[in-house]
Design a protein around this nucleic acid. Structure first.
Lengths: 231, 231
DNA sequence: AAAATAGTGTCTCTGAGACATTATTGA
DNA sequence: TCAATAATGTCTCAGAGACACTATTTT
């Protein structure tokens, strides 16, 4: 397929920072590239936006192709757009719209799309890898965004399933912030934030004493905010 | 000039929400379009990104062309990217990277670039205009961003000149938030936020009692944050 | 003297952090 | 009975909001 235009021509891509918790550790999905440039390098999943496809539709499509995850399983928000002329060595000018994607219990990664291999990485390891393109920067920005958003939005519940105990929600905060929190203070603050969570009336099952199960409340912004402990 | 590509072809634009204070009222720069589509509609200043030009360079260039403002006069930050296939009626697919630009005492607008006319609008009026493309949405998002950022960053000083009194800084907050603030509490909080402002040793001149002049401190994030009063 | 702006202190209330023990379940 | 998780209360401290008057300058 060939296109022509009277404007400077760009390719537009989406790149995804897909985060989930595995064993109470924050993980990010990376794919190993099968093609040049950066063949065999690890990279964020992503790809080109199609004609007549919106940016978020492209993000959801890549998520489905490269992670096998449907849009009902995740929350997705735009991070920022990266457009340095040198960020992609190919002759085409490639601008990439990056997204942060949060999900609970996302499936084990599988190869798909043009990726030779896909797997979850604990973020501490992923940030030490020599990622393709400017993906190390994008990942760092995505992590910052996730950490910030947990403070003043209810986004943390996106890491949990449809129902969860307060203990699970606390584990989310501890994994993303990398700091232990006091359970009593955490519970007090979560329950004092109107619309953060609501009781389902059910109790959890499994190991340990059953606890009340909650679901996401109606609020999107948190007031008052939870505060990331300093130090 | 004609380009060809093996990828779906996009044009990439930048659009700017340029804010300044005029008579203690928050104003935004709009241009009247001279060409189709949306000829004679008011729009955010902006234009296409050139070949081999980074996104922020394009934003600064448009700012210079359409507002006559150099990069040393403003602070600029990326807002988000808009890419709905229907957002531009032209056959080319146009994705726009939007920016929020804050400046002090920006010059009276002049026509430039492909704008027939340019002028400052109080934001309350601007948001009621039928703007071109999806610019009403972009402007609304830009206003939200500016209001949020004033809470937890030192961005407010970008609306002031190189030195300013605390009274001027308070006027910035009141204009952007649309709420009166208590001067005593405001001073206490600003001076308690490490690195927000630092004394110059100079005093203001002009009407009223002279006050200490401050300049922007080294901090970019505010701790503790200033809080937008509710209600 | 009038208008405009700068500067100062205290009380009260809310929310944050620190901190230990008991309760209930499954293995 | 042990391991794992849930649940509960109090004290102290910091920061936010409410609130009134005096000081200095220009016109």
């Amino acid at each position: 397929m060939t296109f022509t235009s009277d404007f400077p021509v760009f390719a537009v891509a989406v790149d995804l920072c897909v985060f989930t918790l595995r064993d109470d550790v924050l993980n990010v999905l990376l794919v190993r590239r099968g093609e040049q440039p950066f063949a065999a390098h690890w990279a964020l999943p992503g790809g080109f936006v199609h004609e007549n496809e919106s940016l978020d539709a492209a993000a959801y499509r890549e998520l489905s192709e490269e992670a096998g995850v449907g849009r009902d399983r995740v929350r997705l928000e735009q991070l920022r757009t990266y457009g340095d002329p040198a960020r992609d060595p190919r002759p085409e000018r490639v601008v990439s719209v990056a997204w942060v994607v949060l999900g609970a219990d996302l499936p084990s990664a599988r190869a798909g799309g043009d990726a030779a291999e896909a797997r979850w990485w604990p973020v501490a390891e992923a940030t030490r890898l020599p990622l393709a393109f400017d993906h190390a920067q994008i990942l760092a920005d995505g992590l910052d965004r996730a950490r910030d958003k947990l403070e003043y939005t209810t986004l943390a519940t996106a890491f949990c399933g449809p129902t969860f105990t307060l203990g699970r929600l606390q584990a989310v905060y501890e994994a993303v912030w990398g700091r232990p929190l006091d359970a009593r203070n955490f519970r007090r603050k979560v329950l004092a934030s109107a619309g953060f969570v609501e009781e389902t009336g059910e109790l959890s099952t499994g190991v340990g004493r059953p606890g009340k199960l909650y679901r996401t409340g109606g609020a999107t912004d948190l007031w008052p905010a939870l505060q990331l402990p300093e130090g």
